[in-house]
Amino acid sequence: MALASSACGGDEGAGSGTDVEVERSDLPSPLQAGEGSCQLPGGPLSFNELKGPLENLPVACVPSWTEEQLIDGFAAIRDTRVQELALPEQPGFLRRIPWLEPENGCEERAPAATYFLHQWGYPTPWFARVQSRAGAGLVLQTENEPDGEVSWSHHVAPVVRVGGQLMILDPAIEPGGPLPIAAWLSRFVVGDVDMAVCRDHADEQGCFDAVPAAPSLPNMTNSQGLRGRLITEWRVQELLGRDPYRSLGDCPPWVTTCPPEPASDPNQPPTIQRFASDKTDMPVWYPIYVIGDNFVPGLTTVRMTGPGVDELAPISAINKRRILIETMYPSGVYQVTASNGAHASQAMSLTID
């Protein structure tokens, strides 16, 4: 959900609770909530036709959940690995909704969450969408991005109503549990924003359809939809120096009961698997991520040999599985070797474009 690109009715289901209606006098038409009721629009409406400040959101229109549903439903969308999200190249490795790639993909994550919650018998959440005004931007500090921060123009997540309060289900922002909407906004809003709650669409083009449709899973057939977000999430784990089979498997960062990985062995050579500059398939240029295993902070060195260069590269950051090099090298083909003292990896070819 980069700054220049897309982002980032209550069905009765399992354990559904009693609705708690909220009386408000400041709700905008055409979502005017009356005494104990909510008037839904009679035709299609976009986000831009409904957007406004937080205090004008039509609380009574949002589907009602019980506290138990809130706790259980949040844990379900955060933790459940499902066959529908397994990638064709890894058919036996079930995946979760890609919460660990917060920079992009909220417009895929939010519909995926509502789809699965609907399938699992929960009242179908709506979408809370926030958009910055005048390019002010939305900024999230997060340990799940290599830069430690992401910037958005807009963001969206599932929203439900519990006891008269709007609650957001967004493990990309807070994996510890659901957040009241004001607390959710406080995590990333740095300027004036517009908001809307939308029943049918998570993106800017739509909010309400004339006739509601059952939730559907976003595109899993090409790299532009949810499949692309899952691929990028895997690459992000590598750039962070995590083992994707752990962090995207049974040991995501919010699980504290997993045994630690074995420490690097300084008496064994490192291995180099590949190089990257970012989370896409763009050519390697700057910075250089060396992705592999058995790197030892304070010991491992990286030798770059190429056009007019034969040196130990300055290392900016290192952990067991990733080395970051922020020196800008000339274009060309290099041979790269990582060493733990006298124990060296095989040389690997690196093309810098």
Rank of each mutant, 00 (worst) to 15 (best):
K279I: 04
Y286M: 05
D293F: 08
D293T: 08
T301R: 08
S277M: 07
M304G: 07
F275G: 07
F295R: 07
V290L: 06
P287K: 10
R274Y: 14
P287H: 12
L299G: 00
P297Y: 03
T305V: 15
V302T: 03
T300W: 01
F295E: 11
L299Q: 14
W285C: 02
D281L: 00
R274W: 11
P297G: 04
K279Y: 12
T280P: 06
I291Y: 06
N294T: 09
F295M: 10
Y289Q: 02
I288S: 12
V290M: 01
V296Q: 12
P307M: 07
G306F: 05
G292V: 06
P283G: 11
P297K: 06
T305C: 05
V284D: 02
P297H: 13
V284H: 06
S277D: 11
G292H: 12
I291L: 15
I291E: 05
M282F: 02
D293N: 15
A276W: 13
R274E: 15
D278I: 08
P307W: 07
V302E: 01
N294H: 02
P307E: 01
Y286H: 14
R303Q: 06
P307R: 09
A276I: 09
R274M: 15
V296K: 12
T301L: 04
P297W: 04
S277K: 08
I288T: 14
M304V: 02
T280H: 09
W285L: 10
N294A: 05
V302M: 03
V296S: 06
G306M: 05
Y289W: 13
Y289I: 01
T301I: 05
G292Q: 05
V296F: 08
P283S: 10
D293L: 12
D293E: 15
T301S: 06
D281E: 13
F275N: 04
V284Y: 06
G306H: 07
M282S: 14
M304A: 07
I288Y: 00
D281I: 05
S277A: 11
V302G: 01
I291R: 13
M304H: 11
G306R: 01
